[in-house]
Design a protein around this nucleic acid. Structure first.
Lengths: 155, 155
DNA sequence: GTTCTCATGTCAACTATATTGACTTGAGAA
DNA sequence: TTCTCAAGTCAATATAGTTGACATGAGAAC
């Protein structure tokens, strides 16, 4: 696990702008950093990191999800999922049980402790977003979401 | 180097929303992915990846930057910079020379080939942003930037 | 009832990106 | 001549991911 994460390169560096859209590229970069910084620090103090949070986040929103479906959503291989998932099971932040009828797949659920950590980590991120949206007002928030959807759906 | 990057977990996954701000968290995640996807594919075809692009991006905007200053801006350790930087020098995408007076530090510059790759990779990202901004109009763009600045500056 | 399929689990080897710590080198300054 | 400081290098470690190969165990098909 990483130490506490040095506030690294947070400058919003004073780089010359070669293109008018350079500011937008940098805002995406530093925006992602800004949103995840405190959450990552919190997770590191729990001995966890971003992949663990992604697992907790998805399972919280899809209780009784099977492992195959989780792999699909996370977009990583079974083997890559294995380690962080087992850590979460060992730490009893997740439980896995086979369903009575579909005995083939294992169903994942958060424990109370898992819910608590997922919530606190996500709360750090939501706090950042809430403050930004408060300053921007309802129309600014709607505009932000519209732009982000256009960017996200650029597949 | 990674292969071609499987379009992984691109679902904009249909997860139940536990909080009203969950959509915003997911938009940040998929937005970052959407912006960087094509650029990363292009870079992978050149045998490069995101850290190499970050180096090229910064040096393009700060010609004659010293290695220490670059480390500062990137927020990584000297040792972590070493490998990708040496690759870029070997490939002659960067040049390093000592300055006449300040002979202690090395000054980095892009070669023509380095400029070309930096530009093409960044162009993929700018293209995504430009399309999103065109749909959103000038006021939507301004609102997006204001929100992102608030998020980024949450340090 | 044996065989086929399929979800899951696990082992090994590899790559990439990062870290810290300990050192060297070489130039400039005191 | 010694001290400082930027840069370079080596080793060990952690994390996050990959592919390939193979085991297990349950359900379904024949």
């Amino acid at each position: 696990m990483p130490k506490t994460s040095q506030a690294a390169g947070l400058h919003r560096a004073s780089l010359a702008k070669l293109h008018d859209l350079d500011a937008a590229l940098e805002l995406m970069y530093y925006g992602w950093r800004g949103m995840t910084l405190e959450a990552d620090d919190y997770l590191a103090r729990q001995g966890l990191s971003r992949p663990h949070h992604r697992i907790l986040y998805v399972v919280a929103r899809r209780p009784d999800i099977a492992i195959g479906a989780l792999i699909e959503i996370l977009g990583i291989s079974k083997q890559a999922l294995n380690r962080p998932l087992n850590l979460l099971l060992e730490r009893k932040l997740l439980t896995s049980k086979r369903s009575p009828e579909q005995h083939r797949s294992k169903l994942l659920r958060l424990t109370a402790a898992g819910h608590r950590i997922e919530q606190r980590a996500s709360d750090h991120e939501r706090k950042v977003m809430r403050q930004a949206f408060e300053r921007a007002g309802a129309s600014g928030t709607a505009a932000w979401m519209a732009v982000m959807e256009a960017i996200a759906d650029n597949n």
